Amino acid sequence: MSALAAEVLQPCADDIEDILNLLGRVWPQLYGATGCPAFSAGYLKWLYSGPDAEKNHLLGFRDESGELIAFKAALFRSIRISGEIRSAWLTSHLAIAPELPFARRMEVSAALSRLHGLDSDEKHVNIAYFEADKPIARNARRLAVKAGLEVAEQEFAQHIVNLRKLRAFDAGTDDIQIAELTQNDCPDLVALMGNHSSDHGPIWSPTAEGLGHHLLNAPENFAITARDKNGVIIGAAGCYVLEYLRDDQVSRMFICETLIADDPAVANQLMRTAHAHATELGLRGIVVENATHLNADIHAACGLLKTPRRMIFAMRGRSLPDVSPTMFGLDIK
């Protein structure tokens, strides 16, 4: 059996189709009861393209026939942590064809276990998410420590929006104006994100172009801003529709991935508007995948309720900041 060669894939139609087929075969087997995204070409192209596409690293292995048999994505994110800007890569979409012989599986597993970016600069960071109750979380931690890497983790829960609690909150003002977000709004939003402290965990620090791509090109995206009576942007929300596969059943979920608001009244108005849009689409509610960066007042204003699903946010690097994360302001993929 000859050795396999790694191949850097591109977010083009042919490679996207091959990645889509592999993920569609592997992930439902791995996450059947928990559920996983029902991946689409549009969803993957959104994640793999955009202004930072050249910094993403899509690594695959093909067999002798050219079929993609293993894959991992490392998606570039510029983060701010302890006031310092660092380059990070979010590792996701790991998939290895289950029918491979054991020796071949071990070969590609070893190659895909290397964390992109960490060998080129000691300040680089790798980010990953794991189901809290899966062995892969423990195995990844053990391998990182064995490789001499520093590891910082935080367990967190997903949330849903409780409509009764959302409606019960008294915003107490009519001065908040909600409007559709445009690319021209993104520089102001980047500046607003820059005001948030990164002393207790990493915060995404995108360019205006990168933020615009993320919020405006997501599948069935819904992105809005909140402005004060003087027209100044004081908050924003970014949502999209995700098809989710659980036990061979596909459902449509409305994901609120970005919520920027310091004032509970602003957060409430953004979430009310997002919930009304979800209802128009025939969706039952909103899932907030990461609420660790939102304070208790924002949680109450948005009617957030914890779900039983527990996940682990993990940072690995050769020289991590001296921070035990209690929050993070990053997307989950």
Rank of each mutant, 00 (worst) to 15 (best):
P308I: 04
L216H: 06
E7P: 03
E220Q: 13
T279F: 09
L112Q: 05
G35D: 09
S92C: 15
L118F: 05
Y129P: 01
D119L: 01
I127N: 06
A261E: 12
T34S: 13
L58C: 01
D188R: 15
D199T: 11
R105N: 10
P98K: 08
H159V: 06
A3Q: 12
L283C: 00
V151H: 03
K72P: 01
M106Q: 15
S49V: 05
V26S: 07
D228G: 01
A223S: 15
L192R: 08
P187A: 03
S92L: 11
P219Y: 05
R227T: 07
A70S: 03
T91K: 00
I203F: 07
S49Y: 04
R138F: 11
F71V: 06
E180Q: 11
L320P: 00
S109H: 10
G212K: 09
A110R: 14
E64V: 08
I286K: 09
H200F: 07
H275K: 07
R246F: 00
A291W: 08
A6Y: 01
P11G: 07
A276V: 08
K55C: 00
L20Q: 08
D247T: 07
L112A: 08
A110L: 09
H277D: 11
G201L: 07
T34E: 15
C186Q: 06
N162C: 14
R309A: 11
L294P: 05
L75P: 05
D63Q: 07
R105L: 06
A218K: 07
S78R: 15
E280T: 14
L94G: 13
E153D: 14
P51F: 08
V125F: 12
H214G: 00
L59C: 10
A147L: 04
Y244N: 13
I234S: 00
P187N: 00
L166M: 13
L20K: 10
N230I: 01
L215R: 06
D297M: 01
D121L: 00
V287K: 12
V266R: 07
E67W: 01
A73Y: 14
P51T: 09
D121N: 15
K146M: 05
D248F: 02
Y31W: 12
